[in-house]
């Protein structure tokens, strides 16, 4: 049996490519003028045209939250945003929240609570948490869990993310008990003995 399958060209007409134009984006308080066509996402504009690679691409389709940035203080998925329509808005990325030498309270809390492992979802988690704090709607653990659910973490650092966000959200007044760590020292051994 032999069938044919043809991956058809999606555009039957002669392909044409819209030329790049100067687009100015205000990122972390600075204007950046780049040459892009309308088809460039805000995410790719940051990563490929401005070398702001702290914002991550985890799916490129709004399904993971790794690309979360703040626009006028609100969290959005930069992968689904066309950069050109974000001119004139204040865009804030992870690089704008704090630096390695001068971490923001959220960034420090993420380090202290070990709220990440591979680190790839982390900038998105932190921008999302900053957006959550800016929104001022969530206080309880259940609320924070739900409102941090737009950011996947494949390493499974969720309980520590919750602890970090709750700490900053409540200025350190709330300590979340989402699981303790117990170390049973060697000295207490009962095992390795005769049955």
């Amino acid at each position: 049996m032999s069938l044919q399958f043809i991956q058809e060209p999606l555009d039957k007409a002669t392909p044409h490519v819209v030329p790049a134009q100067a687009v100015t984006l205000n990122v972390n308080g600075e204007d950046h003028t780049i040459q892009i066509a309308p088809w460039t996402s805000l995410l790719d504009a940051l990563r490929e045209y401005m070398d702001l690679t702290g914002t991550k691409k985890g799916c490129d389709h709004g399904q993971c939250g790794a690309c979360t940035v703040l626009v006028d203080g609100k969290r959005i998925n930069s992968c689904l945003a066309l950069a050109t329509v974000y001119q004139g808005k204040k865009i804030q990325t992870i690089e704008g929240l704090g630096t390695e030498e001068n971490l923001s309270p959220l960034q420090q809390a993420f380090v202290d609570h070990d709220a990440f492992q591979c680190g790839y979802c982390t900038p998105g988690q932190i921008c999302s948490a900053q957006g959550l704090i800016n929104e001022g709607r969530c206080k309880t653990e259940d609320e924070v869990r739900e409102h941090m659910s737009g950011n996947l973490c494949r390493c499974g650092a969720y309980t520590n993310i919750l602890s970090a966000v709750m700490e900053v959200l409540h200025d350190g007044d709330v300590v979340v008990d989402n699981g303790v760590l117990i170390t049973v020292p060697v000295a207490s051994t009962k095992a390795s003995s005769v049955e």
Binding site: V144, R145, E146, M148, S149, G150, N151, L152, C153, R154, G156, Y158, T159, I161, L162, D177, N178, G179, V180, L181, I182, T183, V184, P185, V186, T189
Partner: peptide, 17 residues
């Protein structure tokens, strides 16, 4: 895969050897 809302309390115990 799970989201934050799926994950609740997890205690970890290390029984050292």
């Amino acid at each position: 895969i799970p989201v934050n809302a799926d994950i609740h309390k997890i205690d970890v115990i290390f029984v050292e050897e």
